[in-house]
């Protein structure tokens, strides 16, 4: 069967991993710890695709008809 790259699908928003500096910046901006972020499972297909590990933070950029681009951050947790 042909391998399908799901990130190419139009309905899958762009997921990128934050580096340590960006993570720290995010935590400082919202005055939060890792536990207070929304979550995403490690076995999520997109997370596996971009090689995310437990404890990493994913930045999700969604297209939105009202906001243009909507930002969302999720921490990767065990599935």
């Amino acid at each position: 069967m042909k391998e399908i790259d799901i990130t190419k699908n139009d309905l899958v928003p762009k997921h990128t991993l934050l580096n340590d500096g960006e993570k720290l910046e995010l935590f400082n901006q919202y005055e939060i710890t890792l536990r207070q972020l929304p979550r995403i499972l490690v076995n999520d297909p997109v997370v596996q695709n971009i090689g995310g590990k437990v404890g990493d933070v994913v930045k999700v950029v969604r297209k939105s008809p009202t906001a243009g681009e909507a930002l969302y951050y999720r921490v990767i947790v065990r599935g």
């Binding site: 919202y30 939060i32 536990r35 207070q36 972020l37 929304p38 969604r62 939105s64 009202t66 906001a67 909507a70 930002l71 969302y72 951050y73």
Partner: peptide
Amino acid sequence: ANRIIEFSPGED
């Protein structure tokens, strides 16, 4: 519990 649910209400 002060957990973030959305970063902006209704994403916009």
